[in-house]
């Protein structure tokens, strides 16, 4: 068969390509992550890795296991729906080890974040012009943050 003889170089080329493809497939079978395709076209193990990230906010349920007294005060007041860490910040470290100081929030910064009067805020949300309202007197002089309404059992 002369055609095979004269096309011999083409068969060599084809052989080279076939060998390359085969090598690729062999390497591929070794280095594709083992959990790839477990749930879909991704590395299944990634889900557990993401789920394993550490938490920083302990969650109010955790806070309330120790601070049930505060939870009690809060539950009757205007801030009943405001979670602990909304004001106190992330406390997972303190929850794991109570000897770690949780820090004391600064009411001068905190209160006005939500309650400074602004036309942009919903009308029914309590807001004050802090300067006019208190004239420099700290908020907690009159309002107890855990139950802020004056005369509602929480006032000082």
């Amino acid at each position: 068969m002369r055609i095979f003889k004269d096309a011999g170089h083409l068969f060599r080329l084809a052989g080279l390509f076939a060998a390359g493809t085969l090598l690729f497939l062999v390497i591929r079978s070794f280095i594709v992550p083992r959990s790839f395709g477990q749930y879909g076209h991704y590395r299944g193990a990634a889900i557990a890795e993401i789920a394993a990230h550490p938490i920083h906010f302990a969650g109010h349920q955790t806070c309330e296991t120790c601070h049930s007294d505060i939870a009690q005060t809060k539950s009757g007041g205007k801030h009943a729906q405001v979670n602990c860490e909304a004001c106190h910040g992330p406390q997972a470290k303190h929850a794991d080890d109570p000897s770690i100081d949780p820090g004391k929030p600064d009411t001068a910064v905190l209160c006005v974040r939500c309650h400074a009067a602004s036309a942009a805020r919903p009308n029914d949300f309590p807001q004050v012009d802090a300067e006019q309202h208190a004239g420099g007197v700290p908020c907690q002089t009159c309002h107890q943050p855990h139950s802020p309404a004056i005369g509602a059992g929480g006032a000082k």
Binding site: R2, K5, D6, A7, G8, H9, R12, L13, L16
Partner: peptide
Amino acid sequence: LGSDNVSPRA
């Protein structure tokens, strides 16, 4: 590729 076949047919 080890082939020096440059015959007119090739």
